[in-house]
Amino acid sequence: MPNPGALMEPELSRAIPEPGPQAAEALRPRGLPLTDAAAITAQPMLQVRNLDLYYGDKQALHGVDLDVKEHTVMAFIGPSGCGKSTLLRALNRMNDLIDGVRVQGSVLLAGQDLYAPGVDVIGLRKRMGMVFQKSNPFPKSIYENVVYGLRIQGVRDRHALDEAVETSLKRAGLWDEVKDRLSESALGMSGGQQQRLCIARALAVKPEVLLMDEPCSALDPIATSRIEELIFELKKDYTIVIVTHNMQQAARASDYTAFFWLGKLIEVGLTEKVFTTPSERMTEDYITGRFG
């Protein structure tokens, strides 16, 4: 099966032979402003401070410092193995599940340190929705998938659940497609629908931050563009961090871009700036497809 991301990357190098304002413009969906003025003045939602992460003896993240502002989209880019997914998973402490992971430094969610001793990890994860690289709906009905997070919180009120299903699916742009088959298995949906269902499932628990780990890497271009539109919609209410291999996607969908290389944060800034006038030579090389 062809990987849409892999197919699009050579195209990217054709599209932007030299970084320049026209190139970034070309990558944006038509009519969208380059960066919202609000995005620049927003308050930081997530603050990563001097974060080191070790897998056993191997250091995967080196002193990362990063701010993600409220109601903005932050894209993590970088070659495979650069630590961008690791950082994403460090944000909601999913790395805790892996044996031998050690973390130093801090991550603040609205000022509260996630790695402070005695933090309620479960409560924390409720505040951060996560969407994975491969869509992973539960082998249950569409309805049960959406209400899963609410059910484990002990919500039993049928009315509240029904309402959550409708709002979440509408927000994820899936309602019209599935409203008549909510009781059918989620596994019968197409890949793009499954991924949007996973987004709806994450939205149903009313998170503040949405973490997306290459959400489109297994999707075809049409499904990908739907997800990107969705991201643009969702940022009004959520703070979004997205890991992507697809530079066009980062350019189109994000307000800020962070470039990682070998576990180090090389450059972070407004997407417009990172893609047009990167301050680091390495960023430029990567964006123009000279390595990575």
Partner: peptide, 23 residues
């Protein structure tokens, strides 16, 4: 049982036991 399903459940704020029991 795929790791991705466990992670999906945990990321939604389920405890380990809830994940085991429900997924």
């Amino acid at each position: 049982v795929p790791r991705s399903l466990r992670e999906a459940s945990l990321a939604l704020g389920a405890t380990k036991w809830q994940t085991i029991w429900k997924v």
